[in-house]
Simulated assay, not measured.
Amino acid sequence: MDIATNPKPQDRLAELLADEMAAVNALIRERMVSEHAPRIPEVTAHLIEAGGKRLRPMLTLAAARICGYEGSDHVKLAATVEFIHTATLLHDDVVDESEQRRGRPTANLLWDNSSSVLVGDYLLARAFLMMVETESLRVLSILAGASATISEGEVLQLSAASNLATDESVYLKVVRGKTAALFSAATQVGGVISGADESHIQALFDYGDALGIAFQIADDLLDYQGDSSATGKNIGDDFRERKLTLPVIKAVALADADERAFWQRTIEKGHQKPEDLDTALEIMTRHDTFEATRQDALSWADKARQALAPLPKGELRDLLADLADFVVARLN
């Protein structure tokens, strides 16, 4: 796919699903209203209206359509997925003490940590109410399970983030929890609500899981090599926040004594000097961990494409395959 000349796959997906996404957006605005606490829609709108790609709800709509669904509950599920995602972002920004999200000041910076946490809790509660409205116990189980897995992944990251003993297997558990769990749930429930064949539901889950992992690995690499104007983050934020992401984990595994002492000082102990980011970039470049990380992202994107094989052929399946390509094409 030539991303220089073709529209981005998420833009093509948005165009194909325009009517359904309009219904999702209307439902989001309707359900984020609070009669008694006007700060709730203020905080929610700040993040939801900030130009996010709405990728996860689009995956739910696409999964339902590819499975031939003709009802309306997929709109509620798509809005549910976006509410869960927004709640996790609000909570993450408090935990990470972030000051920027999607190129704008974070809600916790504009308001306060308490508002961000409590509004996030409200959105999770609203999400569960919409899940129940579908009257599908299996859908409820999948999305409730994903919500628990996301929290578990975030807690695991707290203990693993600055620990040099964290290896790639632990990193993958964190990524599967905090990112891939919602991708795979978003695609899986689209198949479940459609009453699709179990092989199709499993294919959608596998696609979402692999896509989510590729997406997070790419994001972690872009933290060191991306364009700040495009990512909305400063280069090296993960380093400054002492997060052991995949490029650093690979570098630690290959470190000599001096390099290991550097990682212990900067990551484990948090004693960082202004020039340390440049040193970290130099070490990772020397060990070629950026390229190794890029190859891992490409491998997961390939797994996502392969997972689509059991699904009906057509424009939607091709678009989902293109989306997997695009997630990692950002790294070129």
Rank of each mutant, 00 (worst) to 15 (best):
A321G: 15
S115G: 05
P105H: 01
G103P: 03
A257K: 09
E291P: 00
L222K: 05
T231A: 04
A18F: 10
E291Y: 09
V132A: 12
S169C: 11
W263L: 00
I48S: 13
A79L: 05
E168D: 12
S114M: 11
R286V: 01
P310V: 14
D237G: 00
D73C: 05
H287W: 09
G212P: 02
P38M: 01
I217Q: 01
Q225R: 13
D2Q: 03
Q188Y: 04
A14S: 14
G120H: 00
L281K: 09
D93N: 06
L204E: 06
A50E: 08
A251E: 03
R138N: 07
V132Y: 08
T166W: 14
T5V: 13
N25V: 05
E70P: 06
E315H: 13
T266I: 11
I249R: 07
A26T: 15
S299Y: 15
V33E: 14
V94Q: 00
G191C: 07
E259Y: 04
Q157V: 09
K178C: 03
A87Y: 10
Q306W: 09
K250Y: 11
K313H: 15
V175G: 05
D73S: 09
A161D: 08
L172Y: 10
L182C: 10
N108C: 14
R102D: 11
G71S: 03
R138S: 09
R54G: 06
K233R: 03
L158C: 12
E49C: 03
H287G: 05
L281C: 12
V117A: 06
L320K: 10
G232C: 01
I40K: 07
V43H: 04
A180Y: 06
R101G: 12
E282R: 14
R242P: 10
C67H: 07
R286S: 05
V189H: 01
T106I: 13
H287E: 03
L311R: 08
I213L: 11
R56M: 13
Q100S: 12
N108Q: 14
L331I: 07
L254E: 15
V175F: 09
E20Y: 09
H36K: 06
I3M: 04
V81C: 07
T134R: 00
R102N: 11
G153K: 02
P312S: 01
A87P: 03
L156W: 08
L277W: 11
A186W: 09
R56I: 14
G226Q: 06
A45F: 01
L204I: 12
G226S: 04
E259Q: 14
I283G: 02
V94T: 05
I249K: 08
E82Y: 12
S116R: 06
V155C: 00
G52C: 02
C67S: 15
Q225I: 02
S169K: 15
E35D: 12
